[in-house]
């Protein structure tokens, strides 16, 4: 068996990109709705809103449940060491971290709005990769990518 990946049902997209841990979180109640959430490296600022830029109701000075889910999945995907290093959480000890939620107490910033569109367009780029046709042509350059 190959290693198992995290499940994408709740958090279809999470990435470390442009100085942020950011992603898309499905709404618990409405299947059609998604939340766009991020934590910023360094400042520790965060935000959560719907895809249409309506602020998340759960965001009251501290990270909402979507942000907690985001950081949980981020840690599953990248491992605690990379998330801690990327966000610059100096006080955190990656070896002891069992879930992303434990990292929230090291995040010192507050809610700070960014346009959801920036993150959401990254999600669309991400989805584009699963829409490109597979191929049977030789790709000799893949010799560099060993895992």
């Amino acid at each position: 068996m190959l290693p198992r990946a995290r499940k994408v049902q709740k958090v279809p997209f999470v990435e470390l990109y442009a100085g942020r841990l950011q992603g898309v979180v499905s709404s618990g109640s409405d299947e059609e709705r998604v939340y766009v959430s991020y934590f910023e490296a360094g400042t520790g600022n965060f935000y959560c809103s719907t895809n249409n830029n309506r602020p998340c109701g759960g965001l009251r000075g501290s990270p909402c449940k979507h942000l907690i889910e985001l950081i949980n999945e981020g840690v599953l995907q990248y491992g605690p060491a990379r998330v801690v290093a990327y966000l610059g959480l100096q006080q955190a000890e990656p070896d002891k971290v069992k879930s992303g939620a434990e990292l929230v107490r090291f995040i010192k910033g507050g809610p700070h709005k960014v346009e959801a569109g920036m993150v959401f367009s990254r999600f669309l780029t991400y989805l584009q990769y699963v829409s490109v046709a597979p191929t049977g042509v030789p790709l000799p350059d893949m010799a560099w990518f060993v895992r």
Binding site: M1, L2, R4, V8, V130, P134, G136, V137, L139
Partner: peptide
């Protein structure tokens, strides 16, 4: 011979079978 598929980071393990099945 080589069969390849584009994917995203979260697709690993069993999902590779689904990706490669389409082309090979």
């Amino acid at each position: 011979t080589q069969v390849s598929a584009f994917k995203v980071d979260v697709l690993q393990g069993d999902d590779l079978a689904g990706l490669l099945n389409e082309v090979g």
